[in-house]
Nucleic acid binder design. Sequence first.
DNA 1: AGGCGGTGTTGATTTAGGTCAATGAAGGCG
DNA 2: CGCCTTCATTGACCTAAATCAACACCGCCT
Lengths: 248, 248
Amino acid sequence: MPALSQQMQQLSETCSHCSLRYLCLPDHLETHDLEKLERLVDSGAPVAADTELFAQGDGLTHIYAVRDGSAKTVRIDEEGFEQILGFYYPGDILGFDGFADQKHHCSAVALETSHFCRIPVDQLDALVDELPSLRQRLTRLMSQVLSEDGRMMLTLGRKDSEGRISSLLLGLSRRRALRGMPATTVPLNMKRADLANFLSMRLETVSRVLTRLQRAQIIKVSQHRVEILDRDALRERSSRGAWVADQS
Amino acid sequence: MPALSQQMQQLSETCSHCSLRYLCLPDHLETHDLEKLERLVDSGAPVAADTELFAQGDGLTHIYAVRDGSAKTVRIDEEGFEQILGFYYPGDILGFDGFADQKHHCSAVALETSHFCRIPVDQLDALVDELPSLRQRLTRLMSQVLSEDGRMMLTLGRKDSEGRISSLLLGLSRRRALRGMPATTVPLNMKRADLANFLSMRLETVSRVLTRLQRAQIIKVSQHRVEILDRDALRERSSRGAWVADQS
DNA sequence: AGGCGGTGTTGATTTAGGTCAATGAAGGCG
DNA sequence: CGCCTTCATTGACCTAAATCAACACCGCCT
C-alpha cells in the first residue's frame, strides 16, 4: 500500500523538514530553537472528515496547525445561529481565539481526511517566554488573522453575491499560490451550504452565481473543484456591485 | 477653569492610577512591572474630532490606548471602498493589526475630542521579552479582539437591519457597563453614516430602524444619545430575523 | 434675524437575493 | 443492481432593504 507508507513518512517529518515551515509557526526560528518547538508538536493520526478538533466552550489545551487537508471554524451564538468563521489550509493555525480566557470561542471541524499538528498551549506558553523569536512569530500570525478578518468584514459588508463568490475564489486561489500549489484550480472541499454560510448567502444563490460565472466563461465548475479561466474578469466582478460608502 | 484643570490632572495620571487599568494593558501586571510599562506610555495632548491617529499603510511605530473619548478604525480596500471595522472606547487598544508586517492595515480616527495613550512598539516589544505577564496580557487582548471579530461576522452575516442595530446598541451598552458607566444610556458619538457603514446598511435604514424601535417604546433616541427603555425587548429583536443556518 | 451647509428623517419605488418547491445528479449500501 | 439519502441545480415568487428624492432640523456665520 504505497499511499499509506507515504503518509507515514509524512507524519514522521519534523518542523525543520516541513515544507510549510515558512508559512507556519517555525518561520524565522533558529535551528536550535526550532528543535525545541518540534519537541512540543504532536502530529498524530489522520483525522476523518467532519471530525471536531475542538468545540466551542472547550478549555484551551492545544492549538492546531493544518499539516495537510483542510478545516473550518464554526461559531454558534446565544440564539443558536451558526456562522462559519473561516476555512483553513496547510500551514494555518487553529485556536488563536482561545487565548483570551483559555477557552475556545468556536469549534474546528475537518473538511476532509486531514492531518493536524497538535501543540499543547501550556508548553508552548513556557517556550514562548524562552524564545523571543517564537513570541514575535506568534504575535505576527495573530495580527495577520486580525487583519484578514478586517478584509472579510469588508467583503461581507460591501459586496454583492457575485462579488463575494469572486472574492472567495480569488482568496482561495491566492492562498494556494502561497503554498506553491497550482492556483488556477481551486478545490472546494466544503459543501455548498458551508460556502453559503461563510459568505452569508443562501446555498441556492451560491449555486446560481457559480453557474452564472461559468456561463460567462470566467470559471469552470465541476462538483468540488473550480477552474479559474479568466482571472481578470473574476477580479473585476469581485469589486463590481460593491457599495460606494457615504461620505463621513 | 475647573474643567481644564481636571483634565490636566487626568493626563498626568500614570497607569497605576488609571481607572482603566483592569481593562487595558496593565491588567495582571505586578506593581514593579507596571512601572516599567508606564515609562513607555506617552499620554499626550488632547486630540480633536476627526483627527487621524494613524493611517492605513503607515509604518507601525506606536499602538494607542483610548484614555477617554472614542475612535473608529476604517479600512479602504483596493477598489477604494471603505469599511469601518470598529468603534473604540476607553481601555481599548488600537493598532493590533499592524504587527503582522509592521504596518497599519486600517486608519484610526477620533470620533470626538479624546485622549490617547501612545506606546512605541519597539520599546514595547523589548519590554514584552522581559515581562512574561505583559506578553500574556497582550496575547489575551489580541485573542479577545479575534473572538469579538467573530461575533461581529455573525451579526453582519446573519442578522437583519433591526437585529444589527439592536445588537450594536446592546454591545455598546455592555461595554459601557464594563467600564462602570451608566449602561442604559448609550451615546452615539459617531454619525449615522458611520453607524450605517459599520453595520453594512444604508443610513436611511439606520434612521428608519431607530425610529421604529423608538415607536415600539424600546429605546428613546435623541440626536446622539440612545436611552434603552426595554432591554429584554431589544435582546429579543437582536435575534429575531436571524437566519436559520442550513444543516451542514 | 436670515441664509446655508451639514446631518437626519420620511416617503415612494425598485431590485437583489431570500424563500419555497420541484427536479436532477452522485455516492453509499443491502 | 436499484433504492435511498445527501447534495446541487433550477424555477417562480415575494420580501427586506437599497435607491431615489424631498424635506426637516440644527448649529453656525455674517
